[in-house]
């Protein structure tokens, strides 16, 4: 190729003669500090769990046993199921308040329609799950079509479902068959069924997060416009995320009936904000894109076991929400400090 040297200053060597090595940016070795800072919120949550369990174990005998694991998991699983859906929605950068309505509605449907025969239980379980999924998809559709805040849309569907629950069953009551309740306390190889469900949930998560959908979910929460420019359909993404959230809330409702044996038209609201808290304590960002279900599980266990701890300390149970709030503050503070430290490191 033949081109005249430019008379304008600038690059001296012709690029055509400079085909040697690539311009080296300094090679970076594995960077343990950066790795830890990226996962700081999760690591802090694990540390808090260890401290709380340690404290609890030093005040109460028999904490480090399978029995205690079974008990705590049994107590945590409803919250964790609700928080699983919430985690998915938070990763996408949204929030789902309607899970409270789905849980209430699910328990009253089960408590009023489950017969003794497995057929009716199976049918109505499927209906509860379908209602949860459908309500979630409706949330996603409305959010996409009306371009409204997820907070407002899901607040509205929560309210509607709460009313519907009261119409089906005005007060706590109804019942589910005893064999259904037995499922919740069954045990295999020394582990209670909720522990197996927890394991299944984690397996699901590790599969889900490495599918294209899981990656696209994170991408959409991280930067909606970039994801869109790369070909992600935001409407479809909203349908799937809120649909899954509703589905997990319905699963939480079904599990809850194995524990309480009855339905409650108002119980769902007890899970709305704790589901967000569990996720945030476990390192899920409210702004989307960051976090994972393992963190949420740790967060859910912290919220449960802090209650046990308050109990064995023989102080008023009113201290429980105080302690939970303090934990939330520590978690939020830790992730913000880590983010600052990581940014300082880059600059």
């Amino acid at each position: 190729m033949n081109r005249p040297a430019s008379n304008i200053g600038g690059i001296a060597a012709s690029p055509l003669t400079n085909n040697g090595d690539a311009p080296p940016a300094p090679r970076r070795q594995f960077d343990a500090r950066g790795y830890a800072l990226d996962r700081a919120p999760f690591l802090v949550a694990c540390l808090m769990l260890v401290v709380i369990v340690g404290l609890y174990g030093s005040l109460q005998s028999g904490v480090f046993t399978l029995d205690e694991l079974n008990l705590d998991t049994t107590a945590t699983l409803t919250l964790l199921l609700a928080a699983t859906g919430q985690t998915i929605v938070l990763l996408r950068g949204g929030i789902d308040l309607s899970i409270g309505g789905v849980i209430s509605f699910g328990t009253v449907l089960a408590a009023t329609h489950f017969g003794d025969d497995p057929g009716s239980v199976l049918l109505w379980s499927a209906i509860v799950l379908a209602v949860g999924f459908g309500v979630g998809m409706l949330n996603g559709l409305l959010i996409s079509a009306l371009r409204l805040q997820p907070f407002l849309i899901t607040l509205a569907t929560w309210s509607i479902l709460s009313g519907a629950s009261l119409m089906v069953l005005p007060t706590d009551g109804g019942q589910v068959p005893s064999w259904w309740q037995a499922i919740g306390s069954a045990s295999w190889l020394g582990l209670a069924s909720p522990v197996w469900m927890l394991l299944a949930l984690l397996v699901f998560w590790f599969w889900f997060r490495s599918t294209r959908l899981g990656i696209a979910l994170k991408a959409t929460g991280s930067n909606e416009r970039s994801a869109f420019l790369s070909g992600v359909s935001l409407t479809r993404m909203n349908l799937v995320t809120y649909g899954l959230s509703g589905l997990f809330a319905a699963a939480a409702a079904l599990y809850l009936t194995t524990q309480t044996g009855a339905g409650s038209p108002t119980i769902g609201k007890d899970y709305i904000l704790p589901s967000v808290a569990a996720a945030v304590i476990g390192g899920v960002s409210l702004f989307g894109g960051r976090g994972n279900l393992a963190g949420t599980a740790v967060g859910a266990f912290i919220l449960t076991i802090i209650g046990n701890l308050v109990f064995v300390l023989h102080v008023s149970s009113y201290w429980q929400p105080v302690a939970q709030g303090a934990i939330l503050l520590i978690a939020v503070l830790a992730s913000s400090l880590a983010e600052k430290a990581a940014q300082g490191q880059d600059r």
């Binding site: 599969w207 294209r212 990656i215 991408a219 991280s222 930067n223 894109g289 960051r290």
Partner: peptide
């Protein structure tokens, strides 16, 4: 106007929506 997603890794960004998949539908990292 950069089209990258901040919370994904470099390689996830480069191959976004073109990832090589295993039979289980997961990305072959």
């Amino acid at each position: 106007e950069l089209s990258l997603v901040p919370d994904l890794t470099i390689e996830q960004n480069i191959w976004f929506r073109r990832e090589p998949l295993s039979p289980l539908g997961t990305v072959r990292s």
